[in-house]
């Protein structure tokens, strides 16, 4: 099973320059790829394209040589950079977890989500606490690839380590592919077994 971007071109509107030009990426299941570049090189755009949140202008995104499914649980899940925008502000966090169906109580526990948080609204938790919910949500059963778009940028080091440990353990157990988008080269080296530099 492989996730593949074939010669994709993308720009947000016609007046702008191309953000991605003739870019191809292939990642096998169980592989961990780090995408590394300074700001403005289209890391987030590439992540959104691979997860199907955006459509490439030219080229195609293929999963097992097929386009991404339009309905049902998407096998490619993206974790956003800003957890506070990725959670409905009017929902208690219990509902956020319920939205992805049956979740693994073990993951909740190892992510350090405390039961008291479930009865709170998103505005009552910090960014790091919310990001744990986003991670738990993205590890929905049926996901084969996980794209992490700078998910640990705003977290303190201990929380970062905790979250990455859970992600690595869980993706290894389920044999998932991981794409890590990051500014941090040390993190990229530590986590991924392959790096892609968009500046090249």
């Amino acid at each position: 099973m492989a996730l593949e971007a074939k010669n994709i071109y993308f720009r947000y509107n016609r007046k702008q320059a191309w953000i991605l030009q003739d870019r191809s990426i292939k990642i096998e299941k169980s592989q961990r790829l780090a995408i590394f570049a300074p700001s403005g090189y289209g890391k987030t755009t590439l992540a959104m394209l691979l997860a199907g949140y955006l459509k490439p202008i030219k080229g195609e995104i293929l999963l097992n040589n097929m386009p991404l499914p339009r309905k049902g649980i998407c096998p490619v899940q993206l974790i956003y950079q800003h957890p506070e925008m990725a959670i409905n502000p009017r929902w208690k966090l219990k509902r956020v977890l319920d939205e992805c169906g049956t979740y693994n109580a073990d993951i909740i526990d190892t992510l350090g989500i405390e039961p008291a948080w479930l009865d709170r609204f998103p505005a009552e938790l910090s960014g790091g606490e919310l990001q744990r919910f986003c991670v738990a949500r993205a590890l929905i059963s049926g996901a084969d690839f996980l794209i992490c778009d700078e998910i640990s940028t705003m977290l303190d080091v201990i929380t970062q380590a905790q979250i990455w440990n859970v992600i690595l353990r869980e993706t290894e157990r389920r044999n998932m592919g991981v794409i890590v988008v990051t500014h941090n080269r040390y993190l990229a080296d530590k986590i991924a077994n392959q790096t892609l530099d968009l500046t090249v």
Partner: peptide, 24 residues
């Protein structure tokens, strides 16, 4: 909003999103 797009990727239908995310 991103959470609407995420909900769709979690396999929720437009109707479900309308009722649970938008109506409130």
């Amino acid at each position: 909003q991103p959470y609407i797009a995420i909900s769709r990727k979690l396999g929720k239908s437009s109707r479900w999103i309308l009722v649970h995310h938008m109506l409130p």
